[in-house]
Amino acid sequence: MGTAPTTRDEVPADVIGLSDLVVTTESSDPVVILRGVSLTVRAGELVGLVGESGSGKSTVALAIADLLPEGVVRASGSVRVNGEALDALPAKRRGALLGRKVALVLQDPSASLNPVRRIGPQMIEVLRFHFGVSRAEALRLAADRLREVGIDDPGRVLASYPDMLSGGMKQRVVIAMGLLAGPEVVIADEPTTALDVRVQASVLDLLVRLNSEKDVAILLVSHNIVAVGEYCDRVIVMYAGTIVESLAAADLMASARHPYTRALIGSVPSLETPTQAELPTIPGSPPDPGDVLAGCPFEPRCPLARARCATELPRRIALDESHTVACWAVEEELAQHPVRLEPSC
């Protein structure tokens, strides 16, 4: 299969491509944070990245934006944005590419805006410096974007300082600010976690609407796999710095195979769960970042673990063109159906 050359019209280009990304701390005894992460986000796609806290989701987000914190480095692997490998670009062009094409939305909107500057000037920076738009024109465009994200009185908001706005408003401002450059992709790192429960859904709805209306790809980082399954096109599941499963969101409930993915689905409270009922949690806890892992990182907690799991890292295999999984149990089960088994990238 796959011998016929694909044309551009058929398959949307990748706006983000990570291949075998290894991220470690920068020290004589480095701690491995990402253990070879490969993923793609295609133009206009809405991809959810889920996993427990500490699994490396934010590190993936920051690696794409070339904003890994000081002391944390890309040890190997590559990051491509809009088809261009970041490493191959001189710093200036890399900055221009990322400043224009990648927008970032972070977890806590109250910390995301510069508290000593009014919203207007900080919103229009990208337009002023990457596109040379005049101040007046940039402010007009900013007001338009603010209306698009559901802010009715952009004049007031543009003249406000961040702490005069509510959390939901601030997150809308951050999203509108990201949209001003006309990015290819918005990386939203748990954009609703810090928000009031009542506005969480409206901010998620906003992202979904922007994705379809403006055809901007979104990488939505979340720890709620069920919500991500509802909102996204595709779901990528991370555990301890590795991607354990990736599949179409529509298949999530019925076809997810990895024991960790299944456990995540089982641990999310649903509306039907009585509040007093004990939540099923995943027994055990993720490995510490410093642990040296020879085999599958999920092995200590896995109900299906077998002998080789403790010593051999499972390969990522493709179950079909949209579904990959890294698990020995799944692979062994499929060994009886070799037709469908093929190693994946």
């Binding site: 920051l62 990322l98 972070l106 977890q107 510069n114 920076e125 990457h130």
Partner: peptide, 21 residues
Amino acid sequence: QDYMRLARSKHLPGIRLFTDH
């Protein structure tokens, strides 16, 4: 702070990052 991270994500000229943020 996150606002510095977000400001850096705009890849402004270094001097603006310094004077404005």
